[in-house]
C-alpha cells in the first residue's frame, strides 16, 4: 500500500486506485473533470519522487521536468508527497540591490537573496509589497552564484505596483518574492532544434533568460529573437543582444518597430509577430516561446501551430496587467 502525503496529512492509495481516486475517496478538495487524462484539471506536483511515466505522458516537457503529473492517470509506485495547485505559497524576503532605468519607461530591478533561489530561466514569481499588494513578474536572468533575480518593470499609467517600484523603492529595501512558477523555460534536449522567441515590451525579460540559458547549454540550432515595440525608445538591451548575435553564429536578433513609416538601419519595420512569421518560413520541429501582450500571444500560438510547430513545443506567457 502506497502513502500519499499532502501538507500535514497522509492518505493511503489502494492497489487499484489512481492518486485522484484515493484523494476523492478521502474527500480531499482537488479539482478534476474528465478523469481520463484529457482535461488536465487534476494536474498536481510530486515533491519527493519522479511520477510514473504514464501520468506525465501528455504534459509539456517543462512540466515533466518539474514533476507535475495527472492525478487521474497516476498509479503510484512508491510513497508520494504531493502539492495541490491551490496550496498557499511560500514567500522569501529579498533585498533590492539595483534599481535603474533600462529605457524611458522600464526599470531594471535586481533583488538579492541570502540563500540560493532555485528557478528555471523564463519562469515568473509574485512580488509582494508589505501591505499585501501582489503582482507577477518574469525573471530575466539565469540562476546566479550571487543569488540574484533580475526583473524588467514597465511603468503602467495608474498601475499601483509598478509606480511603487518605479517611484519609491530603493536599493537596500526588502521585498517578498514567491516561489518560481510557470512552464515557459528551456530544457536542454534536441539541441539542433530551431528556437523562435517572440516578445513585445518587457516580454523580453523571460525571453532573455531563456536565450541566455539555451546558449549557455550549448544549443546549436538556429535561435531567432524578435523583440518589438511601437517606438525605438521602448526597446532595450539592443546593444547587448547585437553583441550576443556577433558572438553566436546561430543566434539572430531582430528588433522590430511598429510605428511610423521608416525605421533606422538595424531595425525592422513592423510588428514583431508579423515580422517573425514572414522571416521564418516553416516551424516544423521548432520550439516556440511567446511572451507579451495577450492578444499577440494568443494569435501567435495559433499561427506558429499552423506553420508546423507542435502544440507541445509552443510555450507562452501572456502578460495580464491588473487594472489599477
Amino acid at each position: 500500500m502506497v502513502k500519499l502525503t499532502i501538507e500535514e496529512n497522509t492518505y493511503t492509495c489502494q492497489p487499484d486506485e489512481t492518486v485522484l481516486d484515493a484523494l476523492l475517496r478521502e474527500e480531499v478538495n482537488i479539482p478534476y473533470a474528465c478523469k481520463k487524462g484529457t482535461c488536465h484539471s487534476c494536474m498536481v506536483r510530486s515533491i519527493n519522487t519522479r511520477p510514473p511515466e504514464a501520468a506525465q505522458d501528455a504534459l509539456k516537457n517543462t512540466l515533466k521536468k518539474q514533476n507535475y503529473f495527472l492525478a487521474c492517470l497516476c498509479h503510484p509506485e512508491q510513497d508520494m508527497v504531493i502539492k495541490l495547485p491551490d496550496q498557499s505559497e511560500f514567500y522569501t524576503e529579498g533585498m533590492v540591490v539595483v534599481n535603474e532605468m533600462l529605457n524611458r519607461n522600464t526599470l531594471l530591478l535586481i533583488v538579492a537573496f541570502k540563500d540560493a533561489f532555485e528557478f528555471n530561466a523564463g519562469q515568473y514569481v509574485n512580488l509582494q509589497r508589505a501591505d499585501g499588494l501582489t503582482r507577477s513578474y518574469s525573471i530575466a536572468n539565469v540562476p546566479q552564484e550571487s543569488n540574484t533575480l533580475e526583473f524588467h518593470i514597465r511603468r503602467l499609467p495608474g498601475g499601483k505596483f509598478s509606480e511603487w517600484l518605479h517611484d519609491e523603492i530603493k536599493a537596500g529595501d526588502t521585498i517578498a518574492v514567491s516561489e518560481p512558477r510557470g512552464h515557459c523555460f528551456y530544457i536542454p534536449e534536441r539541441s539542433e532544434q530551431g528556437i523562435l522567441l517572440v516578445g513585445t515590451g518587457t516580454g523580453l525579460a523571460p525571453l532573455a533568460g531563456i536565450l541566455t540559458d539555451a546558449l549557455a547549454q550549448g544549443h546549436s540550432g538556429p535561435i531567432y529573437l524578435f523583440h518589438g515595440s511601437r517606438e525605438v525608445e521602448d526597446l532595450y538591451r539592443i546593444d547587448e543582444m547585437r553583441k550576443l548575435a556577433e558572438q553566436h553564429q546561430n543566434f539572430h536578433y531582430i528588433p522590430c518597430i511598429s510605428s511610423g513609416k521608416h525605421v533606422s538601419e538595424g531595425f525592422t519595420h513592423g510588428r514583431a509577430n508579423e515580422v517573425a512569421l514572414a522571416t521564418v518560413p516553416d516551424l516544423k520541429g521548432w520550439r516556440v516561446f511567446l511572451c507579451g501582450h495577450p492578444d499577440m500571444v494568443n494569435q501567435m500560438k495559433k499561427m506558429t501551430f499552423l506553420k508546423g510547430a507542435s502544440t507541445k513545443d509552443i510555450y507562452a506567457d501572456a502578460f495580464l496587467s491588473t487594472p489599477a
Binding site: T38, C39, N298, K302, F305, T311
Partner: peptide
C-alpha cells in the same frame, strides 16, 4: 481564443 483549450477539446 484559447488554443490550448481548443486543442484539449479536439483530443477529447
Amino acid at each position: 481564443v484559447d488554443m490550448e483549450k481548443q486543442a484539449a477539446k479536439q483530443k477529447a
